[in-house]
């Protein structure tokens, strides 16, 4: 059984956006803080810190997860993807990101990385969602700028385009 002491920092290794990384964290360090402060990923936005607002949502082994409700040490050995995993290395945006831009699905951008991670996972599970299902998925996020209408349009358009592609 592995046991990590409360005062010491232990090494944490996982696959971050496709690359193996190692850092150090004490057990109580949240994954949000680890990704921002140890890994320098400023796209991890910290909102409510109790799992309600969805701004810190990442993908853990492909599934959406609240980074603020996950300890960094729990990521050991897992695959963690942030919004940086969506665009190609050349910088070309993914179809989902382009659709968000086209439909004005973001304004201040604070909630956007989390919503993109949820939406990308959602579209892999549900290829042909109804508007109601998209809205139900989006209910796990708070956006105070857009009113969600643009996001719903963008996600539905991506689903349609992927089916006809």
């Amino acid at each position: 059984m592995s046991q990590l002491n409360n005062d010491g920092r232990s090494s944490v290794s996982f696959i971050l956006n496709g690359n193996p990384v190692t850092g150090y964290a004490e057990p109580r360090m949240l994954l949000t803080d680890f990704l921002r402060e140890e890994m320098g990923l400023t796209e991890i936005h910290v909102g409510c810190e109790h799992g309600v607002c969805g701004a810190c949502t990442i993908r853990m082994d492909g599934l959406p997860a609240r980074a603020c409700l996950t300890f960094a040490i729990q990521a050991e050995g897992h695959r963690i993807d942030t919004v940086q995993s969506l665009a190609q290395p050349s910088g070309v945006l993914s179809d989902l990101q382009l659709a968000f831009r086209k439909h004005h699905a973001l304004q201040c951008g604070y909630c956007t990385p989390g919503i993109l991670m949820s939406s990308s996972a959602f579209l892999e599970i549900n290829h042909d969602p109804s508007e109601e299902e998209v809205r139900d998925m989006l209910s796990g996020h708070l956006c105070r700028c857009t009113g969600y209408v643009g996001m719903v349009r963008a996600i539905l358009e991506v689903a349609r385009n992927r089916i006809s592609a």
């Binding site: 059984m1 046991q3 990590l4 409360n6 057990p27 109580r28 300890f71």
Partner: peptide, 21 residues
Amino acid sequence: MKPHSFEYLRPASIEETVACL
């Protein structure tokens, strides 16, 4: 808004977990 410190245990099985408890 940050948790108190604690020791973290990752048992590999149910048996190890109940021994730990």
